[in-house]
Write a protein that binds this DNA or RNA. Structure first.
Length: 536
DNA sequence: TTAGGGTTAG
């Protein structure tokens, strides 16, 4: 009795040390235990696994005279966590007492290393052994790999096989909806959570808030936030980031103040959200002062991402020199994002001299990002420097750099439709789009010729800009959606000036609200105006 | 003692 009690107690202590980050003490407890049973040894293996000490875990495992299934599973997890999926598989295959946990651990290992084909092979092989964790692992895996539609499809299969989803399932699905901008689907999941009375904890609450913001429904996001019993730093951060990306800079700052009042300490992510919010709303002095307070008042050392926000904030508002000085004063080496922010600012404020200087740095750091070349090319184009535009294009061809194709999606009746720039195969939509162009031209819209070079590497420049993906998506929305319904479009890149103007005209001429999420932020078009005040 | 979920800069 005494021995058992000791072992259980000491194992608990070992586990406690491991979980609070003190591997040394955990190991000491283990070594000094008078006797060690399987459970204690498994706990030690898990502790090693937590800290990536694969060799120690393996040694301990190999020396065990007796093992239970948890021993095998702990080692599988250990290899997976250290990205040694191949070794995990060797243990998995050797394991004589495979249970559902072994399979799930192995599937998760494949998911985390983005080997979804292998994960799916095991998933299929499991047949009736699958439990809800298996399904959750696969769904989360697809989300982590960016295969959002697959994740949703798998969920539908899960329902058809009558497996009862859990709050974990919901979190992954909401994350998929947030990425896709699939509001209808997100709302359906919220409804499902309510009818099935699924507990809304921190994580699920945060997933809902994030989904509503990223799908363009600010009010619903705020409502969920206020409905939560408890809010942790993730929830506050999502609110600050969400408000900022919709252009509610002042409200984001207010949220930050409210958060402090509630006694929650901001972290690095909070400041990314806060500075970014200031940047989108042109709150230059507020942003400057929060940046300077970060370390002194809040004890948070600014990271490269915070410098990135500041350079964007300063550059966008026209303080190009100050932005450059800040880059020079950074304690770390500036990366492509930092230089990219300044390049965009040079483009906006038509400073070709600084733009060239910045580009040298940028292209040496990130020679394969097509977007950078496009931006430089646009900068030259806006200054009528066509020789340089041409050189830029040739350089891209020489280096084999391709611009990411523009892609927009729109959700109609629960189905997400995707459109790619320059797609002229959908004749009906394009005919309709041409009609829209004529209509808004009659109301004063003039196509901006400088953005014709937005897609420098494409031969069919004309048709590409005429059929930028967001235009096709909006045309499709106007064709298929009931009058008065908000058109919501998600684009993978930043929208160009010309499309931005075009959307403003449509919102006025067709009396339609358009909410567009681009790579950077949200644009709410209504009555000929955009919520970003043309500042983006 | 073993498996699944959340926020972040161009």
């Amino acid at each position: 009795m005494g021995f058992e009690f000791d072992v259980i107690l000491l194992t608990g202590l070992l586990d406690f040390y491991a979980k609070v980050g003190d591997l040394g003490s955990a190991r000491k407890v283990f070594v000094e235990m008078p006797e060690r049973d399987v459970i204690a040894t498994n706990a030690m293996i898990s502790a090693f696994s937590r800290y990536g000490c694969v060799e120690e875990a393996k040694q301990l495992f190999e020396n065990m005279s007796q093992r239970n299934s948890a021993s095998w599973n702990s080692l599988i997890t250990c290899y997976c966590k250290s990205s040694e999926v191949h070794n995990a598989r060797l243990i998995f295959d050797r394991n004589p007492m495979k249970d559902v946990v072994s399979w799930n651990a192995m599937i998760d290992g494949y998911c985390k290393s983005e080997q979804m084909v292998k994960a799916d092979e095991l998933f299929v092989e499991m047949e009736f052994m699958k439990n809800v964790v298996t399904w959750n692992t696969m769904i989360a895996g697809y989300v982590q790999c960016g295969e959002f539609v697959r994740a949703i499809n798998l969920f539908q299969r899960m329902l058809s096989e009558e497996v009862k989803p859990t709050e974990v399932t919901m979190v992954s699905l909401l994350s998929a909806c947030a990425h896709l901008g699939a509001l209808d689907m997100g709302e359906w999941i919220h409804g499902y959570i309510r009818t099935k009375k699924i507990m809304i904890d921190f994580i699920l609450g945060n997933a809902l808030i994030d989904m509503y913001f990223k799908c363009g429904n600010v009010e619903a996001a705020i409502q969920v936030f206020h409905g939560l019993h408890d809010r942790n730093i993730f929830c506050w951060n999502s609110v600050i980031i969400g408000l900022g990306m919709h252009g509610y800079g002042k409200e984001a700052v207010d949220a930050f103040i409210a958060m402090e009042r509630e006694g929650i300490k901001p972290d690095g992510v909070t400041f990314v959200g806060l500075l970014c919010s200031c940047s989108h709303s042109g709150l230059v002095s507020v942003g400057r002062s929060y940046f300077s307070e970060m370390k002194i008042v809040y004890g948070i050392e600014p990271g490269i991402e915070h410098y990135g926000c500041m350079i964007d904030l300063l550059g966008r508002s026209g303080c190009l020199q100050e932005a450059l000085e800040l880059i020079k004063s950074m304690p770390m080496k500036p990366n492509a994002v930092v230089w990219g922010g300044l390049l965009r600012a040079c483009h906006k404020h038509k400073d070709a001299k600084l733009g060239e200087q910045v580009t040298d740095n940028l292209l040496s750091l990130d020679p394969h990002d097509g977007g950078n070349y496009v931006f430089l090319s646009n900068l030259y184009a806006s200054l009528n420097r066509w020789t340089e535009v041409d050189q830029c294009r040739k350089l891209m061809i020489k280096r084999g750099v391709r611009k990411t194709p523009g892609c927009s999606s729109i959700e109609v009746e629960n189905i997400v439709y995707e459109f790619v720039a320059g797609d002229t195969s959908r004749t009906q939509i394009n005919v309709f789009l041409d009609k829209i162009v004529k209509e808004v031209q009659a109301h004063g819209y003039e196509p901006d010729t400088t953005t014709v070079l937005h897609d420098v590497e494409d031969e069919e420049k004309e048709s590409v800009v005429r059929y930028h993906s967001e235009r096709i998506a909006v045309a499709f929305g106007l064709m298929t959606m009931q009058p008065g319904r908000i058109i919501r479009v998600v684009k993978n890149l930043r929208t160009c000036d010309d499309c931005h103007t075009f959307m403003k005209f449509i919102s006025n001429v067709y009396k339609r609200e358009i909410i567009m999420r681009d790579r950077n932020r949200f644009h709410h078009f209504r009555n000929g105006y955009c919520s970003c005040n043309d500042y983006w």
